[in-house]
Computed example of a mutant assay.
Amino acid sequence: MSQAIVFVHLFNDCSGSPKVLAQVATALSGKGIRTEMLTSSWGDGPLRGIADTERTVFYRRSENRYITLFFDILSQLHLFFDCLRYLRVDAVFYINTMRPTGAMLAAKLMGKVVVCHIHETSIKPLLFKKLLRSVVSLCASKVVFVSDYLRKVEGFGVDDERVIYNAIAKSLKPKRDKQSAFGVLMACSLKTYKGIFEFLNVASALREDQCIQFTLVLNAEADEINEFFQDVEVLGNVRLLPRQTDMSSFYADASLVLNLSKPDEWVETFGLTLLEAFSFGVPVIAPEVGGPTEVVREGMDGYLMDSSRVAEIAEKIQEVAHDRSEWERLSLNAAKRADDFKLSVFDQRVTSLMSAKLRAL
């Protein structure tokens, strides 16, 4: 009987969850077990070129909710029947997010070990979320959460549930030669619940301050962005950019990174952009609920503020932008905080998670 770890993720884009799965797959490679990656051909994310074998699964998105639902049903059916090929393979299924239900059900039917890596909590509608949760509860042998907050609100009652914080590949020394302009960066999906309009409102509040410039990098194509903002006034102190395959230069040029997700619509369960900012010695402003509270130390490497407090956020940005010593203190602390999320620690925890199965194989 052949042996494999099968990684499953639906949409291979540049968001946080595929980045984390790429790190998991890298950590488990070279262990003497064949690795296989099942993901969509749609998307230009980080899941290519990691596993020994790659298989494409059907996945599409649409602005029409009914078409999206139809595509989702098709993708789950495709996943279910495609995964049945592993009936005679001694395989562990590593499922990323709650959504690949077809793979979970097929693995359960075949009697395989199922590990679910959970990143999300804000799934709508509620009935859909309940369906996803029921499949995870039925199929999962092990569950990994990206934060303790997520474990507490989404626990499934599985015997082996643990928290493995996301990690960054490396920490870089803070840049001390920041230009005269104070760069405020936010990178997020093209969704209103990510605080896009709050970001524009903060920029508008500081439009008279020539020293502060804003950059918004959206996980979308240029035509999608143009359509979204066609009736929205974007001031001259804001730069809008489409999806980027490498964000390094943006973090390197930033002085402050924002995460303005609206907690009443979308609770951040970790906030990988915060950690990426820390790796460049960039302080942050993030929501005061959810996973960011486990990453950001209030007043040390950033601030925890509700995105609805636009005036207060703008005031805090201006305060830090014009106090060089305060920015340097935050920056140094941010770089030190990044060391708490080293990739080596992540690799060790992922390997420990799979150790019993790895020994058996």
Rank of each mutant, 00 (worst) to 15 (best):
T269F: 01
A169C: 07
V289Q: 00
L131A: 09
Q179L: 01
G111T: 04
D246S: 14
S249L: 09
R99V: 05
S75A: 11
S344C: 06
N64T: 08
V232Q: 14
R309K: 13
P125C: 02
S308Y: 04
R151P: 05
S75C: 06
D264A: 04
G45D: 07
T192K: 15
K175L: 02
P18Y: 00
L84M: 12
K19M: 11
N237T: 05
F278H: 13
L361V: 11
W42R: 13
D340F: 03
K316E: 03
V217N: 05
E154P: 10
D148K: 03
W327V: 13
S308L: 04
S15C: 13
S204Y: 02
R85H: 09
L138G: 02
L200Q: 06
D90Q: 07
S75T: 13
D44S: 11
F71V: 13
W42K: 15
P125Y: 00
L241K: 09
A91P: 07
L132D: 02
W42A: 10
F128E: 03
Y66K: 13
L77W: 01
C14V: 15
E265C: 06
S248E: 05
L190A: 03
P125S: 01
D177A: 10
A286F: 00
V257G: 11
A334L: 04
A334E: 07
G299A: 07
K142M: 02
I317C: 10
E198P: 08
K152P: 06
N259G: 02
S147Y: 03
D160M: 06
G49T: 12
L21K: 09
K124Q: 12
E233T: 14
F145Y: 14
K112W: 00
D306H: 07
I123A: 03
G195M: 05
V114R: 05
K336L: 08
L28W: 01
G32W: 00
A356T: 15
Y251R: 11
G49K: 14
K124N: 13
T35Y: 01
T351E: 04
K124W: 09
H322D: 10
N226Y: 02
L10R: 15
K357A: 04
P174L: 09
R65S: 06
F58S: 14
L79P: 13
C139N: 07
F197K: 12
L358S: 06
S40M: 02
V163P: 10
M104R: 12
M37F: 04
G111N: 03
L241Y: 02
T269W: 01
T351Q: 09
D246H: 12
S180V: 06
F280Y: 15
P18V: 03
R151W: 01
Y149P: 00
V115K: 09
D301K: 09
L10A: 05
F58P: 13
Q348S: 09
D159G: 05
D253N: 15
S29M: 03
E208F: 01
